[in-house]
Write a protein that binds this DNA or RNA. Structure first.
Lengths: 254, 254
DNA sequence: TAGTGGTCTAGACCACATA
DNA sequence: ATGTGGTCTAGACCACTAT
């Protein structure tokens, strides 16, 4: 009947997740060892082990036998369509990534943006617009709106050097992501920017990302249909490939 | 001894996964309880518990306290872009799904198909082609090739009633899936079948699925850009939503 | 009442890293 | 030599479901 007691391994997990979310623990920081948790909280080692093991399975931390447990890097939000940093992707293919910034300014959210970010119309947002190139060939227009309150220093960044995606991840780990993918004919302007052919459609990805429990960024990503495709490969959990994925980092691409 | 001493909980997991894959255990069948595994294999209960708990986390089984452990239904292969049964999707939106079969025949694999299915050119495959409609409006052309050896009774099925996807899942659980998504202008024929506008692009999904460790099916799915989009929402594991997904899965209520 | 899963303990042995 | 994670055991108590 009454509120169930929350299991101790779960309390431990939430404690550590909280410290990661708040920034108290940063990626690659050391997390208390099993024995330290035993001493600090009075649980048995099996209980501490379960907490840390599940955090590892869920991607929050990385464990190395004989060494310790460390906060995971946030390539994370894996699955679905990975939250891909396009710069990393391009370089992974052995090409050179560059980008040119078209727009980087403060503005008031119109109703569309306000709805997407779950804020009041008129609230402060930053608008970033840039073109990403792979070895000099345009492959993506990134048209992004960021909650100003979440990332107050956006205007001081040089997004030709660090992508908005990478910058936002560095501020705070992304917790949640939503993707919508569709095919669309480009506007004249987009077609020109992406150097697209006459009858060429766009692959458009709309992505919203969450941090601190609320949407913080909303982006339309336009890609030339002839030079871009999304891929995803799923293997069931508990497979060899699962381990491989964890070790190799992220990114799909086969 | 042995190579690297495979942990006992892992041996138990693979034993049970094997029985599920082979069909020895069918969806909703009862899996041995923790105590039965203890008696049968001599492990401690904590070890049996870990095996069954992980199988539950990975979606192979569903556990109900006080009742037992049961083989899960195969809606599974979740994540990435879910292996969607389009009929279920349409009905989930409250609409009526129907489909008309355009093609259903045996043929020899050409080199493209052979490559995709990792077989020799000329090997036996089935070619299935159908149009899926949502409340009478065409939303997908499914152009699929199936390894004949994997599904010998394809020609006897009525795919206007049971979708190929559902039929293939019923033969054997799908283990692995690969998706490629792109934007493309349709051919004249596809445009007509999907009743598309003049300048309307297609959202094309190419999907390969694996069973018994090898690719068994390869499909191109064409959607009208104006009436179809893919969406995916990611929430980190260990969240409320994760639990919700699990609960809403097999059992009817929530 | 007997069986099930959910959790927890206080030990234990091991392979491996680091110093 | 010490600490770390990886595994395992043989008990235990609990809430729940079924009979």
């Amino acid at each position: 009947m009454s509120a169930q007691a929350i299991p101790r391994y779960r309390q431990l997990k939430e404690l550590i997740i909280g410290q990661i979310s708040s920034g108290e623990l940063q990626p690659s920081d050391r997390v208390p060892s099993e024995n330290e948790l035993v001493d600090a909280t009075g649980v048995s080692r099996m209980t501490a082990n379960r907490a840390l093991r599940e955090l590892n399975d869920e991607g929050y931390v990385e464990r190395v036998a004989g060494v310790g447990t460390f906060v995971a890097d946030f390539k994370a939000v894996s699955h679905v369509l990975e939250v891909r940093n396009i710069a990393d992707e391009v370089e992974l293919r052995g090409h050179v990534h560059s980008s040119s910034v078209l727009q980087q300014k403060r503005m008031s959210a119109d109703s569309n943006i306000a709805t997407a970010l779950d804020i009041e119309a008129g609230a402060d947002v930053f608008h970033i617009k840039l073109i990403h190139l792979e070895s000099g060939i345009p492959i993506q227009i990134e048209d992004r709106f960021v909650l100003a309150e979440f990332a107050p220093h956006v205007l001081e960044q040089d997004f030709a050097v660090v992508t908005p995606s990478a910058y936002l991840s560095s501020i705070s780990p992304l917790q949640e992501a939503e993707h919508i993918v569709r095919a669309e004919m480009p506007t004249e302007k987009i077609s020109q920017h992406l150097e697209m052919g006459a009858q060429e459609p766009c692959l458009v990805v709309t992505r919203r990302t969450w941090a601190h429990g609320r949407p913080v960024s909303f982006a339309n990503l336009y890609h030339p249909g002839s030079r871009f495709e999304l891929s995803g490969h799923y293997v069931p959990p508990g497979t060899e490939a699962q381990v491989k994925r964890r070790l190799s980092g992220a990114t799909t691409n086969d």
